[in-house]
């Protein structure tokens, strides 16, 4: 006979909070270092980071820029690095989606067999357990520097991460359409194609867009280990201690991520909102106070 245990959620939250405080106190060796931090930040910011060096948008000295005058920005390291990051993110999201969808169908326990489901979940968890930067190091060692390592690394991570989101979305769908189809005698493959995918399509598309957004953010980081993208230039200038260029790149990444986030929110709203007539406007996305 099972016994019900009543738990006070407030008490649990407070206990966790005080446990975190206790663990933090145990982790800090010298509180004096914290008082120096703000001063260090001020010196670092005003003497090294600011103002940003916007020369990153100027064409590189070598090779010669062949683009016409107005498009000379396309020869800049900022443009080249950012477009490479976006390409890596896009390719790895598409490849990751293509690979993760069948895996998530195998992992979802409402349409798969228990054994297959456990095995696929284990595979997805193992792909997900390493962050994309570790996969990037792995592929840089395996196939050398460049965006191809980044694509492989991001694809592998995307499969693990997106696969989990997808099988959770599939498991979260109502069991009733499946029951009606099962009673009618439809097979597993038919149910998957005709019921599971259409029913969870909105979630799957929304998650893929979210994953692209996530990959753009992480694509900026993996370049640091030589896997291509804007991270390569960030790492290069960090090595030379040219922090004013580093901050310019970081501002660029911040703006691009912000824009992609906003576009992603807008596009995803078409797939998550059940009310067909109530859609956000561009103004409301970029300026939340816009009426």
């Amino acid at each position: 006979m099972t016994r019900m245990i009543r738990v006070n959620p407030g008490l649990v939250l407070f206990s966790c909070f005080f446990l975190a405080i206790y663990l933090m106190i145990g982790s800090v060796e010298d509180w004096g270092r914290l008082s120096n931090g703000l001063g260090n930040l001020r010196i670092f910011f005003f003497e090294s980071l600011w103002p940003p060096d916007w020369s990153i948008f100027e064409p590189r000295l070598y090779p010669d820029c062949q683009a016409p005058g107005g498009l000379s920005i396309t020869c800049s390291t900022a443009w080249i690095g950012m477009t490479e990051t976006l390409k890596i993110a896009f390719i790895s999201t598409v490849f990751g989606m293509v690979i993760s969808l069948p895996l998530s169908l195998l992992a979802a326990n409402n349409i798969s067999t228990p054994g297959l489901s456990v095995a696929t979940r284990f595979l997805l968890a193992s792909l997900r357990s390493l962050p994309s930067i570790i996969w990037a190091i792995f592929f840089v060692i395996l196939i050398g520097f460049g965006p191809i390592s980044g694509i492989f690394a991001m694809t592998v991570y995307t499969v693990g991460y997106l696969g989990k989101l997808q099988y959770e979305a599939i498991e979260g769908m109502s069991s009733l359409p499946l029951e009606a189809a099962e009673a009618a005698g439809l097979g597993r493959i038919e149910k998957t194609i005709n019921i599971v995918i259409p029913e969870s399509a909105n979630d799957l598309i929304s998650q893929a867009i979210f994953m692209f957004e996530y990959n753009v953010r992480h694509g900026s980081v993996i370049g640091i280990v030589g896997a291509g993208g804007i991270g390569y230039y960030i790492d290069l200038y960090l090595g030379f201690l040219v922090y004013d260029k580093v901050i310019a790149y970081l501002i660029l990444v911040f703006i691009v991520v912000l824009v992609i986030d906003s576009i992603s929110v807008y596009i995803r709203s078409f797939f998550t909102d059940d009310r067909p007539t109530k859609k956000p406007t561009w103004q409301s996305v970029f300026l939340p106070t816009w009426k």
């Binding site: 109502s174 009733l176 359409p177 499946l178 029951e179 009606a180 009673a183 009618a184 005698g185 439809l186 019921i195 259409p198 029913e199 399509a201 909105n202």
Partner: peptide
């Protein structure tokens, strides 16, 4: 045999997005 039994669940079991 496939197709011989039709079931209408109480909460219908329709694919909402289709």
């Amino acid at each position: 045999v496939r197709g011989q039994l039709g079931y209408i669940p109480q909460r219908l079991g329709l694919i909402r997005h289709a």
